[in-house]
Nucleic acid binder design. Structure first.
Length: 802
RNA sequence: GGGAGUUUAGCUCAGUUGGCUAGAGCAUCUGCCUUACAAGCAGAGGGUCAUAGGUUCGAGUCCUAUAACUCCCACCA
């Protein structure tokens, strides 16, 4: 029996413990069912707790997982933690205010691992308190031994395939984090700056050349000046030499079509450093490379008196000096977009450095095609991916000059410099701690270890294999690919989705998964993404669960249309609370009439009992259609609609027959019992993927108990496999309209709903409406119904005289 | 500048392949203790479907243009 009042705190905990104990969500590799494999995003460990966005997006995944489980699939729903690399490292460094110059890589790594150990359980607890049906007993982390092994093996295999190379080339560099970064880690930010107009001299002439620049500190690295060959004002200078101000260096004036006449002054200085276009020109025109900036973001010796200054200081000082010498003739305030590092918001520099790269430019077309083959939900997200692929300009730089991350399995021979890779059987290795077992071909046994670590994404791009390895123990192999589903938010399209597709293609020539579901963000009333740094999170996920229950939090999170942002709303949470209570009340009420309910469909069914089964069928078809498209919110709405129809119309009608078989007959009661039981059960099952606790509580105290089942969540949906009957639909709609009209008449006359109706005249209705006569009479307290022929439907209600 | 999305009731959003009078929830208003539920129930009001053209017997839905907002990319002279 169910309690009088629903106590979510006790009940949710009770079932979470029960699920954990009975391991009902464990994956069975031996199962004969079709597998549904989810590549769950491992949350990044970069803070002490999870935010509303996590609750939101992981709920979506759980709903999908539960849906497939109840649709008869063997669902693989793993959980992992992304904790290698810069995000975790930076968090630990900041939290303990660590100076990395005073720590060894090992010491820092240990500190990171220790912190991760503390945080992971916090994440796990939240996931458990939300009733997620992922396997929490067997999780991975992207820094654990297996992940490192798979990641290093991936490096070795791609290296052997010729897809990985090391070279000194233009590298996106963060001077704050002192590491190389990838294109995907860049965030463009609008910043205020000044456009400086300065004079260059011309060798052997008094003429002056006007040049505009936002980065005068790069002047010492200037190697040439470009003008457009069509530029009438400047073309006579081509071939002459310009003289840089302050540094008085002679540089050639070259013709370059890419120098646009209408931009700036029409004259560009080229510095082969610090700017992507400049580095391109360096290659095209074979210009000398002059390094102006160090890895720490300070000026090199080339800057003379400005050497050693930070970039911004140098800029200010140089501008001052240019002003003093009257070389700067104009200055404008501008705002422009600057490439910054998304982790620290520091301006990106472009330096020339030795780095490891994975070839992606030469595979651009294949990646594009793969993106096209993936099924993106919503479909418009495909364009975003393709758009990104089309815009690729760099190979994938995977080396990072950090401490914390997966090491490269690489040594260099101290004598001949040859690259030596670790044996696959020895993986994972840390080249700082071990050396190769055999000497180099040149005979030397002295090794220089690669000190860099791999980019986080070099490892997280392998989550399909890392997660599958938990159950299938398959290592780096293309078995079980493509997986069924990758769910993540839209910011990850060009990052995680992209890199995962790249790796699966390069290794196996396969897609990593068939479907990608893209979710939006949780935003505040102003439409801004909710995040801790913005301080617009009204309630933490923990508070949400404590104040509203997991089911209600999940209900709110499920109310989405795929790919769109959702506003965090206390109203929706209140709605959820009401719905949960309503489900409890309605179920309790209906169940109280079902002790002697017939198991099989009675021969003779009342018309409105057939009608509600028909309504269920309609809801099911809509539900299935939406779920196929991963529209969990719209699917939920269908079930909600059905549920309210069931409560407000069906139960109200049927309860008279359930209450009083002595008046309406035993057969009419059986008929109602059957429909009420069937529909309630079906509704509970559909609701259970969204609100697993309340539905489990009801189901296991009734239907599930009777059938000796373990849980509603391991049961299958209750399907009728019937055909929708349009006539039944119309007839039911007519009855609902008639009942509504009777209620309205009473309401408008400020009368109680139990007021008797003396006479009801129904004109123009189908003959069959008479089949519902006793139900209409009962629900509306109608004494007499008169039927009339008419062309138009009409309802006349005569209330008892007041 | 290139790509994408959004624009429907006061608010948040549905609206499949064009098809009766454009829907839901919340909010507002009115009423009702009715034998599950007053944290409930019944009912009502509220929309020039961003704008302007076009296709069509018929357009919220298709086409063209425009505007506003959001996101991604490019733009550091």
């Amino acid at each position: 029996m169910l309690d009088k009042k629903y106590n979510f705190k006790e009940t949710e905990k009770k079932w979470q413990d029960a699920w954990k104990q009975s391991k009902i969500f464990a994956f069975n590799t031996q199962s004969r069912l079709t597998k549904y494999l989810i590549d769950t995003p491992p949350p990044t460990i970069s803070g002490p707790s999870l935010h509303t966005g996590h609750l939101f997006s992981y709920t979506h995944i759980d709903v999908i997982a539960r849906h497939y489980r109840m649709s008869g699939y063997e669902v693989f729903f793993p959980m992992g933690f992304d904790n290698n690399g810069l995000p975790s490292g930076r968090y630990v460094q900041k939290k303990y205010n660590l100076n990395l110059n005073n720590l060894s890589r090992e010491q820092f790594t240990d500190k990171c691992l220790e912190e991760i150990k503390n945080i992971q359980p916090i994440y796990k607890n939240l996931f458990e308190s939300l009733g997620f049906s992922c396997n929490m007993e067997n999780t991975y982390s992207t820094i654990d031994k297996n992940s490192q092994k798979i990641s290093q093996q991936s490096f070795i295999e791609l290296y052997n395939k010729g897809e990985i190379f090391r070279q000194k080339s233009a590298t996106l560099w963060c001077p704050e984090c002192k590491t190389a970064i990838a294109l995907s880690e860049i965030e463009t930010k609008e910043k205020e700056s000044k456009m400086n107009y300065i004079y260059f001299g011309i060798a052997g002439s008094d003429e002056k050349l006007e040049i505009a620049t936002t980065r005068p500190e790069l002047l010492p690295a200037c190697v040439c000046v470009f003008v457009n060959p069509e530029d009438k004002k400047h073309k006579h200078l081509i071939g002459k030499k310009a003289i840089t101000p302050l540094f008085h260096k002679e540089v050639p004036i070259l013709a370059n079509e890419e120098a646009l006449m209408d931009k700036g002054t029409g004259v560009v200085m080229c510095c082969t450093f610090g700017d992507e276009a400049d580095m391109q020109w360096q290659k095209t025109f074979n210009l000398p490379i002059i390094e102006a900036i160090t890895a720490n973001g300070r000026m090199t010796d080339i800057a003379g008196e400005f050497a050693g200054l930070k970039i911004k200081e140098a800029r200010e000082k140089i501008i001052e000096k240019l002003k003093e010498e009257n070389i700067l003739y104009k200055q404008e305030d501008i705002t422009h977009l600057v490439a910054t590092h998304e982790r620290c918001k520091c301006d990106i520099e472009i330096l020339s450095k030795q780095q490891w790269f994975i070839s992606i430019l030469k595979h651009q077309q294949e990646i594009f095609d793969a993106g096209q083959k993936c099924k993106w939900h919503p479909e418009s997200m495909k364009k975003r991916f393709l758009n990104w692929v089309e815009g690729l300009k760099w190979d994938w730089c995977i080396s990072r000059q950090n401490f914390f991350g997966v090491p490269f399995p690489v040594w260099y021979c101290a004598k001949c410099g040859k690259v030596h890779l670790a044996d696959i059987k020895d993986l994972p290795v840390d080249p700082l701690k071990t050396t190769p077992s055999t000497p180099c071909e040149c005979g030397s046994n002295e090794w220089i270890p690669e000190k860099d670590v791999m980019d986080t994404w070099a490892t997280s791009s392998l989550t399909p294999l890392i997660s599958l390895n938990l159950e299938f123990n398959q290592g780096l192999s293309g078995e079980n690919l493509p997986m069924s589903l990758r769910p993540n938010a839209h910011d990850n399209i060009r990052v995680w989705d992209f890199y995962t597709i790249v790796k699966a293609l390069l290794h196996f020539g396969k897609l990593p998964w068939n479907d990608v579901v893209i979710s939006g963000y949780v935003v505040d009333e102003k439409g801004e993404k909710i995040s801790k740094s913005k301080g617009n999170e009204k309630m933490s996920p923990q508070q949400l669960v404590e104040n509203y229950s997991a089911d209600v939090a999940r209900y709110w999170a499920s109310n989405v249309s795929m790919g769109h942002d959702t506003i965090f709303s206390l109203e929706q949470l209140a709605n959820g609370s009401k719905l949960v209570q309503k489900i409890f009340n309605a179920s309790k009420f209906v169940l109280s009439f079902l002790q002697d309910a017939p198991k099989d469909k009675p021969e003779k069914m009342e018309i409105m009992d057939k009608w509600i089964l028909n309504e269920l069928q309609i809801a099911e078809e809509n539900f299935d259609r939406y779920m196929k498209e991963y529209e969990i919110g719209l699917a939920l709405k269908e079930i909600e609609k059905l549920f309210w129809n069931f409560c407000d119309n069906y139960i109200e009608i049927a309860k008279n027959r359930l209450y009083k078989p002595e008046i309406y007959g035993e057969e009419a009661k059986k008929s109602a019992q059957y429909s009420a039981s069937f529909v309630l059960q079906a509704i509970l099952k559909y609701f259970s993927i969204y609100m697993p606790h309340i539905t489990e509580e009801i189901y296991m105290n009734s239907f599930g108990q009777a059938k000796k089942e373990k849980s509603i969540h391991t049961s299958l949906y209750l399907k009728q496999n019937a055909v929708v009957d349009q006539n039944l639909f119309d007839l039911g709609a007519d009855v609902v309209m008639i009942v509504s009209r009777i209620r309205g008449e009473k309401s408008q006359n400020n009368l109680s709903l139990k007021t008797e109706v003396e006479k009801l005249i129904l004109s123009g209705f189908d003959e069959k409406i008479k089949l519902a006569e006793q139900d209409i009479k009962a629900v509306g307290s109608v004494k007499e119904i008169i039927y009339q022929d008419a062309k138009q439907k009409n309802i006349e209600v005569f209330l008892k005289a007041d």
